[in-house]
Amino acid sequence: MLRSKQKPFEEILRYLEGENRVFILGCDGCAQASGTGGPVQVAEMKSKLEAEGKTVTGTDVVPFLCEKALIKSRLARKAKAVMSADSILVLTCGVGIQAVAASVNKLCHPGCDTQNLGGSRGEWPGSERCAECAECVLELTGGICPLTACTKHLLSGQCGGASKGKCELSPDRDCGWELIYHRLKALGRLDKLSYLAPPKSWAKMAPDPAIMSSPEYALEMPAVKEASGE
Protein backbone atom coordinates (compact mmCIF):
# COMPACT_ATOMS: atom_id res chain seq x y z
CA MET A 1 0.00 0.00 0.00
CA LEU A 2 1.11 3.56 -0.73
CA ARG A 3 0.27 6.16 1.85
CA SER A 4 -0.75 9.63 0.79
CA LYS A 5 -1.65 12.92 2.38
CA GLN A 6 -3.78 15.61 0.80
CA LYS A 7 -1.88 18.68 -0.33
CA PRO A 8 -2.83 21.94 1.40
CA PHE A 9 -6.04 23.25 -0.18
CA GLU A 10 -4.38 26.59 -1.06
CA GLU A 11 -1.81 24.71 -3.13
CA ILE A 12 -4.55 22.83 -4.98
CA LEU A 13 -6.30 26.15 -5.67
CA ARG A 14 -3.04 27.54 -7.09
CA TYR A 15 -2.86 24.60 -9.51
CA LEU A 16 -6.42 25.36 -10.63
CA GLU A 17 -5.77 29.06 -11.21
CA GLY A 18 -7.27 30.20 -14.50
CA GLU A 19 -9.40 27.06 -14.76
CA ASN A 20 -13.12 26.92 -13.98
CA ARG A 21 -14.13 23.36 -14.73
CA VAL A 22 -12.58 20.41 -12.97
CA PHE A 23 -13.26 16.68 -12.75
CA ILE A 24 -12.30 15.04 -9.45
CA LEU A 25 -10.98 11.51 -9.39
CA GLY A 26 -10.37 9.43 -6.28
CA CYS A 27 -9.12 5.92 -5.59
CA ASP A 28 -10.88 3.32 -3.50
CA GLY A 29 -7.62 1.48 -2.80
CA CYS A 30 -4.72 2.98 -0.87
CA ALA A 31 -6.06 6.54 -1.06
CA GLN A 32 -9.32 5.45 0.55
CA ALA A 33 -7.34 3.71 3.29
CA SER A 34 -5.14 6.78 3.72
CA GLY A 35 -8.25 8.95 4.06
CA THR A 36 -7.16 11.15 1.17
CA GLY A 37 -9.03 10.07 -1.96
CA GLY A 38 -11.92 7.78 -1.04
CA PRO A 39 -15.60 8.60 -1.67
CA VAL A 40 -15.78 10.76 1.47
CA GLN A 41 -12.76 12.93 0.56
CA VAL A 42 -13.84 13.26 -3.08
CA ALA A 43 -17.26 14.54 -1.94
CA GLU A 44 -15.59 16.93 0.50
CA MET A 45 -13.26 18.23 -2.18
CA LYS A 46 -16.23 18.76 -4.50
CA SER A 47 -18.01 21.00 -1.98
CA LYS A 48 -14.83 22.89 -1.12
CA LEU A 49 -14.09 23.63 -4.76
CA GLU A 50 -17.70 24.61 -5.45
CA ALA A 51 -17.54 26.98 -2.49
CA GLU A 52 -14.56 28.58 -4.27
CA GLY A 53 -16.71 29.08 -7.37
CA LYS A 54 -15.35 26.17 -9.41
CA THR A 55 -17.62 23.98 -11.50
CA VAL A 56 -17.08 20.32 -10.78
CA THR A 57 -18.06 18.57 -14.01
CA GLY A 58 -18.13 15.19 -12.33
CA THR A 59 -16.42 12.88 -9.88
CA ASP A 60 -15.54 9.23 -9.71
CA VAL A 61 -13.81 6.90 -7.32
CA VAL A 62 -12.08 4.07 -9.15
CA PRO A 63 -11.19 0.89 -7.19
CA PHE A 64 -7.52 1.10 -8.17
CA LEU A 65 -6.13 4.17 -9.94
CA CYS A 66 -2.85 2.37 -10.56
CA GLU A 67 -4.66 0.13 -13.06
CA LYS A 68 -4.80 1.92 -16.41
CA ALA A 69 -7.26 -0.48 -18.08
CA LEU A 70 -9.64 0.10 -15.19
CA ILE A 71 -9.21 3.88 -15.38
CA LYS A 72 -10.04 3.90 -19.08
CA SER A 73 -13.10 1.67 -18.79
CA ARG A 74 -14.46 3.63 -15.82
CA LEU A 75 -13.86 7.06 -17.33
CA ALA A 76 -15.30 6.02 -20.69
CA ARG A 77 -18.69 5.99 -18.98
CA LYS A 78 -18.16 9.57 -17.84
CA ALA A 79 -16.32 10.74 -20.95
CA LYS A 80 -18.50 13.82 -21.38
CA ALA A 81 -17.92 15.08 -17.85
CA VAL A 82 -14.20 14.35 -18.05
CA MET A 83 -13.61 15.91 -21.45
CA SER A 84 -15.67 19.02 -20.71
CA ALA A 85 -13.41 19.79 -17.74
CA ASP A 86 -10.29 21.98 -18.03
CA SER A 87 -8.37 19.47 -15.96
CA ILE A 88 -8.59 16.51 -13.61
CA LEU A 89 -7.75 16.75 -9.93
CA VAL A 90 -6.48 13.35 -8.84
CA LEU A 91 -6.66 12.47 -5.17
CA THR A 92 -4.32 9.54 -4.79
CA CYS A 93 -0.68 8.40 -4.68
CA GLY A 94 1.99 9.35 -7.24
CA VAL A 95 1.51 6.12 -9.16
CA GLY A 96 -2.22 6.70 -9.56
CA ILE A 97 -1.78 10.32 -10.65
CA GLN A 98 0.72 9.27 -13.31
CA ALA A 99 -1.47 6.39 -14.44
CA VAL A 100 -4.41 8.77 -14.94
CA ALA A 101 -2.18 11.32 -16.73
CA ALA A 102 -1.00 8.53 -19.04
CA SER A 103 -4.57 7.35 -19.75
CA VAL A 104 -6.44 10.61 -20.44
CA ASN A 105 -5.43 13.47 -22.70
CA LYS A 106 -6.11 16.09 -20.03
CA LEU A 107 -3.91 18.03 -17.66
CA CYS A 108 -3.87 16.19 -14.30
CA HIS A 109 -3.20 18.02 -11.05
CA PRO A 110 -1.80 16.07 -8.11
CA GLY A 111 -4.07 16.46 -5.09
CA CYS A 112 -1.88 14.46 -2.74
CA ASP A 113 1.72 14.03 -1.63
CA THR A 114 2.85 10.43 -1.32
CA GLN A 115 4.48 9.69 2.01
CA ASN A 116 7.60 7.61 2.31
CA LEU A 117 7.10 4.24 3.94
CA GLY A 118 10.78 3.80 4.64
CA GLY A 119 11.49 0.92 2.34
CA SER A 120 8.43 -1.18 1.73
CA ARG A 121 6.75 -0.54 -1.60
CA GLY A 122 3.38 -1.29 -3.08
CA GLU A 123 2.86 -3.38 -6.14
CA TRP A 124 0.94 -2.25 -9.22
CA PRO A 125 0.61 -3.41 -12.78
CA GLY A 126 2.00 -0.41 -14.72
CA SER A 127 5.28 1.31 -15.46
CA GLU A 128 4.58 4.40 -13.35
CA ARG A 129 6.91 4.76 -10.40
CA CYS A 130 6.51 6.98 -7.33
CA ALA A 131 9.50 7.91 -5.18
CA GLU A 132 7.23 8.67 -2.21
CA CYS A 133 8.93 12.06 -1.92
CA ALA A 134 6.12 13.64 0.15
CA GLU A 135 6.30 16.75 -2.05
CA CYS A 136 4.61 15.78 -5.31
CA VAL A 137 5.93 17.67 -8.34
CA LEU A 138 3.69 16.09 -10.99
CA GLU A 139 2.04 19.51 -11.40
CA LEU A 140 5.17 20.75 -13.21
CA THR A 141 5.63 17.82 -15.53
CA GLY A 142 2.31 16.85 -17.07
CA GLY A 143 1.95 13.92 -14.69
CA ILE A 144 5.26 12.14 -15.34
CA CYS A 145 7.50 11.93 -12.29
CA PRO A 146 10.95 13.49 -12.91
CA LEU A 147 12.32 11.78 -9.81
CA THR A 148 11.71 8.32 -11.18
CA ALA A 149 11.61 8.92 -14.96
CA CYS A 150 14.97 10.80 -14.98
CA THR A 151 17.98 8.82 -13.75
CA LYS A 152 19.45 12.02 -12.26
CA HIS A 153 16.09 13.04 -10.77
CA LEU A 154 16.52 16.50 -12.30
CA LEU A 155 13.80 19.06 -11.64
CA SER A 156 14.91 21.74 -14.11
CA GLY A 157 14.90 19.81 -17.37
CA GLN A 158 16.97 17.59 -19.60
CA CYS A 159 20.71 17.21 -19.03
CA GLY A 160 23.28 17.14 -21.82
CA GLY A 161 23.50 13.38 -21.82
CA ALA A 162 20.34 12.46 -23.70
CA SER A 163 20.78 11.05 -27.18
CA LYS A 164 18.02 10.38 -29.70
CA GLY A 165 15.46 10.58 -26.94
CA LYS A 166 17.25 8.03 -24.76
CA CYS A 167 19.03 8.32 -21.41
CA GLU A 168 22.83 8.31 -21.17
CA LEU A 169 22.51 5.34 -18.81
CA SER A 170 21.32 3.04 -21.56
CA PRO A 171 19.80 3.23 -25.05
CA ASP A 172 17.00 1.03 -23.72
CA ARG A 173 15.82 3.72 -21.36
CA ASP A 174 13.75 6.71 -22.50
CA CYS A 175 14.90 10.18 -21.46
CA GLY A 176 12.31 11.13 -18.82
CA TRP A 177 12.42 14.78 -19.79
CA GLU A 178 11.66 14.00 -23.42
CA LEU A 179 8.60 12.06 -22.22
CA ILE A 180 7.64 15.07 -20.13
CA TYR A 181 8.20 17.38 -23.12
CA HIS A 182 5.96 15.33 -25.41
CA ARG A 183 3.23 15.08 -22.76
CA LEU A 184 3.26 18.84 -22.08
CA LYS A 185 3.33 19.59 -25.80
CA ALA A 186 0.31 17.37 -26.39
CA LEU A 187 -1.48 19.24 -23.58
CA GLY A 188 -0.44 22.63 -25.00
CA ARG A 189 1.37 23.39 -21.74
CA LEU A 190 5.06 23.73 -22.68
CA ASP A 191 4.96 26.94 -20.62
CA LYS A 192 5.40 24.72 -17.55
CA LEU A 193 9.00 24.12 -18.67
CA SER A 194 9.88 27.73 -17.86
CA TYR A 195 9.12 27.35 -14.17
CA LEU A 196 12.19 27.54 -11.90
CA ALA A 197 11.72 24.54 -9.62
CA PRO A 198 13.04 25.09 -6.09
CA PRO A 199 15.45 22.52 -4.63
CA LYS A 200 13.70 19.50 -3.18
CA SER A 201 13.37 18.86 0.51
CA TRP A 202 14.87 15.39 0.70
CA ALA A 203 14.32 15.52 4.45
CA LYS A 204 10.62 14.98 3.76
CA MET A 205 11.50 11.54 2.43
CA ALA A 206 12.29 10.31 5.93
CA PRO A 207 9.35 8.12 6.95
CA ASP A 208 7.00 9.58 9.51
CA PRO A 209 7.61 7.94 12.92
CA ALA A 210 3.86 7.38 13.15
CA ILE A 211 4.13 4.87 10.30
CA MET A 212 6.47 2.79 12.44
CA SER A 213 4.27 2.83 15.53
CA SER A 214 1.91 0.13 14.36
CA PRO A 215 0.68 -2.47 16.89
CA GLU A 216 3.26 -4.89 15.44
CA TYR A 217 5.96 -2.34 16.01
CA ALA A 218 4.88 -1.84 19.64
CA LEU A 219 5.05 -5.61 20.20
CA GLU A 220 8.59 -5.68 18.85
CA MET A 221 9.82 -2.91 21.11
CA PRO A 222 10.31 -4.91 24.37
CA ALA A 223 12.35 -7.49 22.46
CA VAL A 224 14.46 -4.74 20.85
CA LYS A 225 15.06 -3.06 24.19
CA GLU A 226 15.99 -6.35 25.81
CA ALA A 227 18.42 -7.16 23.00
CA SER A 228 20.10 -3.77 23.29
CA GLY A 229 20.50 -4.24 27.07
CA GLU A 230 18.32 -1.32 28.13
Binding site: T151, K152, L154, L155, G160
Partner: peptide, 24 residues
Protein backbone atom coordinates in the same frame (compact mmCIF):
# COMPACT_ATOMS: atom_id res chain seq x y z
CA UNK B 1 26.96 21.44 -14.69
CA UNK B 2 24.69 18.50 -13.94
CA UNK B 3 27.47 15.92 -14.35
CA UNK B 4 27.55 12.56 -16.14
CA UNK B 5 26.04 9.56 -14.38
CA UNK B 6 28.53 7.61 -12.20
CA UNK B 7 27.73 4.60 -14.36
CA UNK B 8 29.75 6.11 -17.25
CA UNK B 9 32.95 6.29 -15.20
CA UNK B 10 35.33 4.02 -13.35
CA UNK B 11 33.36 3.77 -10.08
CA UNK B 12 30.15 2.40 -11.50
CA UNK B 13 28.62 1.44 -8.16
CA UNK B 14 28.76 4.98 -6.76
CA UNK B 15 25.56 6.84 -5.96
CA UNK B 16 24.87 9.92 -8.06
CA UNK B 17 23.98 12.70 -5.64
CA UNK B 18 22.14 15.30 -7.77
CA UNK B 19 20.81 16.96 -4.62
CA UNK B 20 20.61 20.14 -6.72
CA UNK B 21 20.58 20.39 -10.49
CA UNK B 22 22.57 22.82 -12.63
CA UNK B 23 19.85 25.50 -12.67
CA UNK B 24 19.40 25.31 -8.91
Amino acid sequence: LTGDLPHLGDHKDAIGVYDLDSVQ
